[in-house]
């Protein structure tokens, strides 16, 4: 499946793509053959080429979510041969290149399959539930203009670095798509951990984790059963250690809230 990356010869591929006209419509796989592909073409550019051909034939192009095409906006969300974001670790769908495939490969392209991310059309899903979780507590309350000098609170470098590891999440939802329980605990754990590691995050530390987890449960995301498919699929390689951290934060906050002064 993962081809010799030094190949420079143009190749042909068949894409087996999930087509679904709308949220309620029935979907099915449709085959598209693409020939004479430069191996340096990105996977999304391959979809562009197929779409250009469809539009020329007055057929509706394949709807797929994309924007920055450099792996940071979190918009693209393809499941390629059963793996969210495709065959390689630590990158998003948009950073997958044709050179990763062999001449003649048949590649299955699907949307995320997770109940909290309903399909809108073809390969596009509604991930607004992530925003809803964030709104429940994924912030530090600081009114504009009320901050103290930025160097007033020195933060040990290792804490800042670890907070940055967690903050690198791009909110793409691959963790949920990869999980058999559709758990969002890697996403929530990353945000909770980022703020719990910083002095600025302390005042709301308990309410944050309790509210975000409650919202996550309410929205139908499942629980973690410790198989870590999430971090394996994560384009930013966010560590599942942050799930452990989330559990620790949650237990601590639950106990403390039982003994509230």
């Amino acid at each position: 499946m993962v081809a010799d990356t030094s190949s420079t010869k143009n190749i042909s591929l068949t894409l087996r793509v999930w087509r679904q006209a709308g949220p309620q419509a029935e979907g099915s796989f449709v085959n598209y053959k693409a020939t004479d592909l430069n191996p340096n073409m990105s996977f999304l550019e391959l979809l562009d080429v197929i779409n250009d051909d469809l539009e020329r034939r007055n057929e509706e192009p394949i709807a797929f979510a994309h924007d920055c095409r450099e792996g940071i906006c979190g918009t693209c969300s393809l499941v390629i041969d059963g793996k969210p974001h495709g065959p390689h670790d630590g990158i998003a769908s948009c950073q997958t290149y044709v050179r990763s495939f062999k001449d003649g490969d048949v590649i299955v392209v699907e949307p995320y399959r997770a109940e909290p991310f309903p399909i809108q059309k073809d390969l596009i899903t509604d991930r607004s539930s992530f925003d809803t979780i964030q709104q429940a507590g994924g912030f530090i309350s600081v009114r504009t203009g009320s901050a103290c000098d930025a160097n007033a609170n020195p933060i040990p470098k290792e804490h800042a670095d670890l907070a940055m590891d967690a903050a690198a999440c791009i909110g793409c939802g691959a963790c949920v798509a990869a999980c058999k329980n559709s758990s969002a605990m890697l996403f929530v754990g990353a945000k909770v951990s980022q703020f719990a590691l910083l002095p600025q995050g302390q005042p709301e530390r308990d309410s944050r984790v309790l509210n975000m987890v409650a919202k996550m449960d309410e929205l139908g995301f499942g629980n973690c059963s410790n198989q870590y498919e999430c971090s394996a699929a994560c384009p930013k390689l966010i560590s599942h250690d942050f799930i452990a951290k989330l559990n620790k934060e949650y237990i601590g906050a639950t106990v403390r809230s039982a003994f509230k002064p």
Binding site: F139, P154, A160, Q200
Partner: peptide, 22 residues
Amino acid sequence: ANIIDQCVAQGVPFAREYGGLL
């Protein structure tokens, strides 16, 4: 200068030196 203050207060994890300063 206010922007940096604001962002740090929001929990933006800027790069830091070993002494903990930005």
